Simulated scan of single mutants.
Amino acid sequence: METQSYKNHIRFYPPHHFVYYPIVMGFIIVSIYFAATTSDTLIWSFVAAIFVVLFCLAFMIRQHYALTLQNRIVRLEMRYRYFTLTNKRYEIIENEISDEQLFALRFASDEELIPLIDKTLSQHLSGSEIKKAIVNWKGDYSRV
């Protein structure tokens, strides 16, 4: 498996990204084509609208469930790592760090995490700035 970094940390879910979505998009295009070229415009427009709704719903539901669960797990992981490294409760500073910052900090190695948290709190770094500041990237190969 390739070592994870800022440039390659985005992952795809092949059944959705490369099978389901292209098929639904194909059906949408075919439905719009038939709506424009046949006398059954109303029926084909309705079919196209159904496929558009299915496309949007599938994307939203898949993303919502996966991201909600992943966010909870990352928060728990960060609480555990912070406590393990500092012997202090993470909840003390949790409200000062945004979700974007927290999700970027998880990629920091244990050696970099505490100094990077301190830098984030003092300089209000964005998630992207945090990721770019990480020298020893701790890959997350299990996320959805």
Rank of each mutant, 00 (worst) to 15 (best):
F27G: 07
F27M: 10
F27A: 12
I28K: 15
S31A: 15
I32C: 14
I32R: 04
F34V: 11
F34T: 14
F34W: 15
A35P: 05
A35N: 10
A36L: 13
A36Q: 13
T37P: 09
T37F: 14
T38A: 14
S39W: 08
S39R: 10
S39H: 12
D40E: 07
T41G: 09
T41Y: 13
L42K: 14
L42G: 11
L42T: 12
I43Y: 13
I43S: 07
S45Q: 06
S45C: 09
F46P: 00
F46R: 02
F46K: 03
V47E: 01
V47P: 00
V47S: 00
A48P: 01
A48E: 01
A48F: 04
A48W: 01
A48N: 02
A49I: 00
A49S: 11
I50D: 01
I50G: 04
F51I: 09
V52I: 14
V53P: 07
L54E: 08
F55I: 12
C56H: 03
C56K: 01
L57F: 15
L57P: 00
A58D: 10
A58E: 13
F59S: 14
M60V: 08
M60A: 10
M60E: 06
I61N: 09
R62I: 12
Q63F: 15
H64G: 14
H64E: 14
Y65A: 07
Y65I: 09
A66L: 12
A66S: 14
A66G: 13
A66Q: 07
T68S: 10
T68R: 13
L69Q: 11
Q70E: 10
Q70H: 15
N71F: 06
R72N: 07
I73Q: 11
V74M: 10
V74N: 09
L76N: 03
L76F: 06
M78F: 07
R79H: 13
R79I: 05
Y80E: 04
Y80R: 06
Y80H: 06
Y80A: 06
Y80K: 05
R81M: 06
R81E: 09
Y82D: 05
Y82K: 10
Y82L: 05
F83L: 07
F83H: 09
T84G: 03
T84M: 11
L85E: 03
T86Q: 10
T86R: 03
N87L: 05
N87H: 07
K88H: 09
R89F: 11
R89A: 03
R89T: 05
R89E: 05
Y90C: 03
Y90K: 02
E91M: 04
I92V: 02
I93N: 02
I93C: 08
E94K: 03
N95P: 01
N95Y: 01
N95D: 04
E96V: 05
E96P: 00
E96Q: 08
I97F: 10
I97P: 03
I97A: 02
D99G: 09
D99S: 11
E100H: 01
E100Y: 01
Q101I: 02
Q101S: 02
L102V: 03
A104E: 00
L105M: 08
L105T: 03
L105H: 05
L105A: 04
R106A: 02
R106E: 06
R106N: 04
F107C: 09
F107K: 04
A108K: 02
A108L: 11
S109W: 12
D110S: 10
D110H: 12
D110E: 06
E111Y: 05
E111I: 09
L113G: 05
L113C: 07
L113A: 05
L113I: 11
L113E: 00
I114T: 00
I114G: 03
L116W: 00
